[in-house]
Amino acid sequence: MDLAMLYDVLDVSPEQGPGRLLFTARKAHYTLPYLVLSALEREGCSMSAAARGELARARRRARHYEEVLTRVTAQVPAQVIKGPLLARTYPEGLLRPQGDLDLVTEGEPDLWNAVRLLTEDNPPQYAGVSVLGAPARHVVVTLTWQPEDPLLDPELRVEIATAALVGDQEAVPIRSAMPADTLTANLLALAEERFQRPFHARDAIDVHMLGNAEPPSLDGLVSAAVEYHLAPELRELLDYAAQRVPVGHLAVLGPALEAAEREERARRAARPVSPGPATDVRAALEAGVPLYGMPLGRATGRTDRDRARVHHFGEGALLLTPVGDYLLVTGETVAQEQYDAALREVGLLAEETP
């Protein structure tokens, strides 16, 4: 990976110079400028004080995530997804673009222990909680903090979940844990991103780095793609990357996935047609579709709780968690009367608590 490859993958002519390369990187993904700046520094290009400052903050951001990962995993059984694992495949001096830190725990007690560890001495700006899955319910907690430069840098964000991959909420199910093999886990996590967005330049660069690491077990990768129901997305990712960068050892994986992709698409097509998104909270909980928590107030001192609890009232439901209380909602808009009713219910519950 060098500047010449970055010009290629971002479709910028070298004659246009590093300014155009950096401008294009900002449009492609908000973290890609970090990689471009680190590549410019690595190759001895002239950089302004502003550019050097942005890169220095990005390096401190990456170190912060590494420190968070070390602190959490030293005390809580947790598995990291992508992020630092992918960064370790990059050559020395190149900064892998990382927007957040994703952690997975085996269950809720460990999840809330990790949340407490990160928030007790450093309260976040925002603590979001979502639930999904049925009959087994999974929890996702998103924590954000102000970055070093709030005007120029993205927020610091850590996401902790009891599910490693959440699927597409239809044919692809929730998968609780990642494979033990790091290469396989990274590839599947990158492929899973396709359910949220199209692939972009950072994904191609990540595949390039993985393809030039240790040679993979081809049979193992294909088996994992079948087990995790990701053969179509993984093949699309590999095709996307191969059109932009050399993919090394992974060049043979795309063709090897052909039969698995065909079988997975057939499996998805054979599933009953979904009745559509649930708008009723009770029905949504029973169906296991994602429900988002609208914050009603933070809680402190709830050290006796290690699980979130659903409390139904009227036509709504509260999610009472160790870090705060939330109104469970199926959409982005909530009527004022529903929100007011939820606040009253929280107040009544507080009065009942000894």
Rank of each mutant, 00 (worst) to 15 (best):
L6V: 14
D8N: 09
D8V: 13
D11E: 15
P14C: 12
G17E: 06
K27S: 12
H29E: 09
V36M: 04
E43Y: 12
G44F: 08
S46K: 14
S48G: 13
E54H: 13
L55Q: 02
A56N: 12
R57W: 01
A58I: 12
R63V: 11
L69D: 11
T70R: 09
V72L: 08
P77G: 04
V80D: 10
V80W: 10
G83D: 12
G83L: 02
A87G: 08
A87R: 11
E92G: 09
G93R: 00
L95S: 06
L95H: 01
P97G: 11
E106K: 03
P109A: 06
D110T: 00
D110S: 03
N113S: 13
R116M: 10
E120L: 13
N122R: 12
N122W: 04
P124I: 05
Y126T: 14
Y126K: 13
A127K: 08
V131F: 07
L132I: 07
A136Y: 06
A136D: 10
H138C: 01
V140C: 02
T142P: 00
T144S: 10
D149Y: 00
P150F: 03
D153C: 03
D153F: 06
R157V: 14
R157E: 12
V158R: 03
V158L: 12
E159V: 12
L165T: 00
P173A: 08
A177I: 09
A177W: 06
M178Y: 06
P179H: 01
D181A: 04
A185Q: 02
A185E: 05
N186R: 08
N186K: 09
L188H: 11
L190P: 00
E192K: 07
F195D: 05
Q196G: 14
P198R: 04
P198F: 09
R202D: 04
D203K: 02
A204N: 01
V207L: 01
N212A: 15
P215M: 01
P215H: 07
S217G: 15
D219Y: 09
S223M: 07
S223L: 10
A224I: 05
V226L: 09
L230T: 06
E233M: 11
L238N: 01
D239N: 11
D239A: 15
D239M: 14
Y240N: 08
V245P: 04
G248E: 13
V252I: 13
G254I: 05
G254Q: 07
A256D: 00
A256N: 05
A259E: 15
R262E: 14
R265D: 08
A270Y: 04
P272I: 11
S274H: 15
G276P: 01
G276C: 03
A283G: 10
A284M: 03
E286I: 04
A287P: 01
A287T: 07
P290G: 13
T303H: 13
R307K: 13
A308H: 07
R309E: 15
H312E: 15
G316P: 04
L318V: 04
L319T: 08
L319P: 02
T321C: 08
P322Q: 07
D325R: 13
L328I: 03
T330P: 03
V334A: 03
V334I: 06
A335D: 14
E337L: 15
E337Y: 09
A341S: 11
A341K: 02
A342N: 01
L343E: 15
V346R: 00
E351L: 14
E351Y: 09
E352G: 02
T353M: 15
P354C: 05
